[in-house]
Design a binder for these strands. Structure first.
Length: 625
DNA sequence: GTAGGGTTAG
């Protein structure tokens, strides 16, 4: 039951103008028939009915700060018999939705005697925004059954739900409805379709729709740029960004966030600087979202200094900003600096969340800060109310495991109450590899392969463990299992950015125009390195070939080729930055240390896990990765 | 009268 608050006042109008009337009086006149606004006001007589303009209810609704206030105005609307006015009731419905009072919205919608397309789209949109998949669709179906056709307002909402749930099947069905409705050229509908396909990882279909659009607006471009970045083709994102500007569109802040994000995924430093320059030229102010994205970008492009510069210059920082900066120090191997930020964050009044703790624990594990990690793990729930989940446990297994404290890692796993996932087991498996614990590795691998039998990386890891223990038969068994299950090792590739162009290499690659020079220089480089003490470690080659061929393959690993190209194509003394899609191989790690010493070059490697800064023969990871 | 795209780990 809606109750009226007697002290509240409300604006009503008569022909004399406006005046505030106590709600009690407003309620008292509720039975008075409302005069149509189209009628000219009559002179006020002693008992003439008051004329209440629905606009004032709408403006009152728009002024509501919370659901309680909306309910009060709702009561006044009921009391004044204005429910039948669709302009008013749609606004009321919309406000409930806007204030996330989906239960109230639903109840009100259910009781509406009359609904127009706006009512339907507000309700469908409400469920979509609330992530209520079932009700969104039920309402949508109800609409198609009993009322007008779905329109360019409802369809994007329904597609949004398909996107959020990654429900490609439903998305395709809605696409059929779009085609039937003849709305396939509508900007909103089309952008939503592109977004849905892109997020469902059907990027080629998204692109086809995108290309077929005669006119693309900024949102559609943004959705497409983001789609590529999410699908792992950030290079194409940046290509599209340039094309968008060639088409005469001016990006806004949201577009820039997605572009910055794509550049972060790509790790392309020169591009990062160009994008930063562009943001400055366009005078985009750094709000907390854009600023945070830029910290992430610079950090993932290998420059902690530039990341920190942005961080220090930001006036407003939220928990994400702090977590990004902490994580950045973590994957650059600067655990202490990551930990230093934590008390600073608290003193700024920002409470850490689960991800902050993942970043902190990760920073500890990559810097070998075992005691600090244990301390954080112990206080996160008691002191900060953040319950450790499987990700935190994985960090701890990693931390303890790398440090050789496998027994403690094992104990932690046994005592865990949350469900164990593949990440946890692979952390244990990786630790077993470092410390050559074959028995424990077999147990971890068994659990891992039960959860994820299709991931070739797990087989490779176990196979490497057998290889380094000299258990060739077991290694062969794993290899056979991989063949039987039709699993192939993920090919490693490395790329390097030179003169704003990205050059990509795979093992033994001869496709580069300068291939001859690269292979020639690499050969003489290795000879020099061997004189300096470098010994190739063939344990890192997982192929059933003889030793000589193994060495040949090892010599042409993608990271070696990319670095050699870097030596040819960049000025002496400048740093070389490369990115690898997998973890950098152990032999290449040694190789790069030697190269950094002999060529006096700083070499910054981003691999799948972290950054390695090589300088004068040592690596920032301290061989701890 | 209503509507679409944006930041963190793994």
């Amino acid at each position: 039951m809606l109750k009226l608050k007697k002290t509240q006042t409300f604006l009503i109008t008569n022909h004399e103008g406006f005046r505030l009337l106590p709600l009690s009086q407003l309620a008292a006149i509720a039975d008075t028939p409302l005069k149509s606004q189209t009628h000219a006001p009559k002179p006020l007589e002693s008992h003439s009915p008051l004329l209440i303009d629905p606009k004032y209810f709408v403006s009152a609704l728009l002024n509501c700060k919370n659901v309680f206030q909306i309910k009060q105005v709702h009561a006044q609307i009921v009391a004044n018999g204005l429910l039948s006015n669709l302009f008013v009731s749609n606004k009321l419905l919309f406000l409930y939705v806007q204030h996330k009072a989906i239960g109230e919205a639903r109840a009100f919608f259910g009781g509406m005697r009359e609904r127009d397309p706006v009512s339907w789209s507000v309700m469908v949109g409400g469920f979509a925004k609330a992530g209520d998949f079932d009700n969104c669709f039920t309402t949508f179906r109800e609409l198609t059954r009993c009322s007008a056709q779905p329109d360019n307002y409802t369809l994007p909402f329904v597609l949004r739900v398909c996107r959020d749930r990654m429900d490609l099947l439903m998305g395709s069905l809605v696409h059929c409805v779009v085609l039937k409705s003849g709305l396939c050229l509508d900007q909103f509908v089309c952008a939503a379709l592109v977004d849905m396909y892109a997020r469902c990882r059907v990027i080629d279909d998204a692109r086809k729709l995108f290309d077929d659009m005669p006119k693309k607006d900024l949102v559609t471009w943004t959705v497409m740029i983001d789609g590529y970045a999410e699908c792992g083709n950030a290079k194409e994102s940046l290509v599209l960004f340039d094309r968008m500007r060639d088409d005469g569109l001016v990006p806004d802040k949201i577009t820039m966030v997605t572009v910055v994000n794509a550049c972060a995924k790509l790790g392309a430093m020169q591009k990062a600087r160009l994008i930063h320059d562009y943001i400055c030229t366009m005078k985009f102010s750094l709000n907390v979202i854009l600023g945070t994205a830029m910290i992430d970008m610079y950090a993932k492009c290998g420059s902690l200094d530039l990341a920190r510069e942005i961080f220090d210059g930001m006036r407003e920082k939220n928990v994400i900003t702090w977590s990004v900066m902490i994580a950045a120090y973590g994957y650059h191997g600067q655990g202490k600096k990551a930990l230093d930020l934590f008390p600073m964050m608290s003193s700024c009044g920002i409470m850490p969340n689960g991800i902050t703790f993942v970043s902190l624990l990760y920073a500890c594990s990559h810097a070998g800060l075992v005691d600090e990690g244990l301390e954080l793990f112990n206080i996160m729930w008691d002191k900060y109310g953040v319950r450790p989940d499987v990700k935190h446990c994985t960090c701890m297994v990693d931390l303890l495991g790398r440090a050789g404290r496998l027994d403690e890692a094992l104990k932690l796993i046994e005592n865990m109450t949350v469900e164990k996932d593949e990440g946890l087991w692979s952390a244990l498996l990786a630790a077993c590899r470092i410390h050559k614990n074959v028995e424990l590795a077999e147990w971890a691998a068994k659990s891992l392969l039960e959860i994820q039998p299709q991931n070739p990386g797990h087989y490779v890891l176990l196979s490497n463990i057998y290889a380094s223990a000299g258990r060739w038969e077991d290694m062969a068994k794993i290899r056979n299992l991989m063949t039987k299950r039709n699993l192939k090792k993920i090919p490693g590739w490395t790329w390097i950015e030179v003169d704003n162009k990205i050059h990509q290499f795979s093992v033994g690659d001869k496709s580069h125009p300068l291939s001859k020079e690269i292979h020639g220089l690499l050969k003489s480089l290795i000879e020099k390195l061997e004189l300096a003490g470098y010994v190739p470690d063939t344990n890192f080659v997982l192929h059933d070939v003889d030793e000589e061929v193994k060495v040949g393959m090892l010599y042409t690993h993608s990271e070696k080729l990319a670095i050699t190209f870097g030596l040819i194509a960049t000025p002496e003394g400048t740093p070389i930055r490369i990115t690898k899609n997998l973890r950098v191989c152990g032999d290449c790690h040694t190789f790069i240390k030697f190269v950094s010493a002999i060529t006096k070059r700083m070499i910054i490697v981003r691999d799948a896990n972290r950054f390695h800064h090589f300088n004068e023969g040592t690596c920032s990871c301290g061989d701890y990765w």
